[in-house]
Structure formats: C-alpha cells, structure tokens
C-alpha cells in the first residue's frame, strides 16, 4: 500500500471513484493506477492470462501491467488515465482478458 504525505492530505481536492462497486475517496491528481495502489495496494490488481497476479510496474505507459476496466471499457492503461468524479473501475481479477489492439505484431 501507499499512503499520502501528511502535509498534502488535508488541503488537496478529492473525487469519488467506484472501485468494484465500492466508493473510494481519492486525490484528484492521481491516475487510476495510483489511486488503486493507495486504496487497495498491489495484491489484487489484475490476473494475467497465464493465471498469475500482476500489478503496475512502470506507471508511465510502458509496461501495460496496469491494464484495468474503466467505465466499462476493459484493458485501459490505468497509469495514463487521471481519476474523475464518479468514474467506475473494475479490477481485472476474475479471468483472463483479451489483449487490446489485437494487431500489434
């Protein structure tokens, strides 16, 4: 888990995210991936297609291990999307997901 520096905790704007159906108050400057690392940690972020758990590695759009469902759209890069009030997030834990951009080769 990550937590906020005490001096920034009070005076920063927050938004409400719905993570797997539960409301979470998070800092308005965070990416979706950062908000999850703060609220839930890295233990149950995403299940990879080989059945192993994965979590964000790079946080800058390179590794694609932060893939997550945002407002119903699966496999978004959670580290590149800044949170918005009312955003619905589903962690991709239950089963293997199809990979995005099928024609990447």
């Amino acid at each position: 888990m990550f937590r906020r520096l005490p001096e920034t905790a009070s005076d920063s704007a927050e938004v409400t995210l719905w993570v797997d159906g539960e409301p979470q108050q998070v800092g308005a400057t965070l990416s979706v991936a950062a908000a999850l690392l703060q609220q839930r940690g890295w233990a149950e972020y995403r299940l990879h297609h080989d059945g192993t758990p994965r979590a964000p590695l790079c946080m800058m759009g390179v590794c694609h291990d932060c893939l997550i469902t945002i407002d119903g759209e699966p496999n978004r890069q959670g580290c590149l999307v800044i949170v918005k009030d009312g955003m619905r997030i589903e962690t991709q834990m239950p089963a293997a997901q199809p990979t995005p951009g099928a024609s990447t080769g």
């Binding site: 990550f2 400057t29 965070l30 908000a35 703060q38 890295w42 979590a55 790079c58 946080m59 800058m60």
Partner: peptide
C-alpha cells in the same frame, strides 16, 4: 520474480510521489 506484485521500478515510485505525494506504507 520481477513480475510479482510488490516489485515496481524506482521511477514508478517517484511518479507516485510527485503525482499524489504517495509514500510506501512499509
């Protein structure tokens, strides 16, 4: 084991620090 949740890059941790003032709990 670098694919395990709990392994991140130092750059990623610094992004969390800049973006949201986030520090590792432990």
């Amino acid at each position: 084991g670098w694919q395990l949740p709990g392994v991140m890059t130092a750059g990623a941790a610094q992004i969390l620090l800049k973006q949201g003032g986030l520090l590792p709990e432990d």
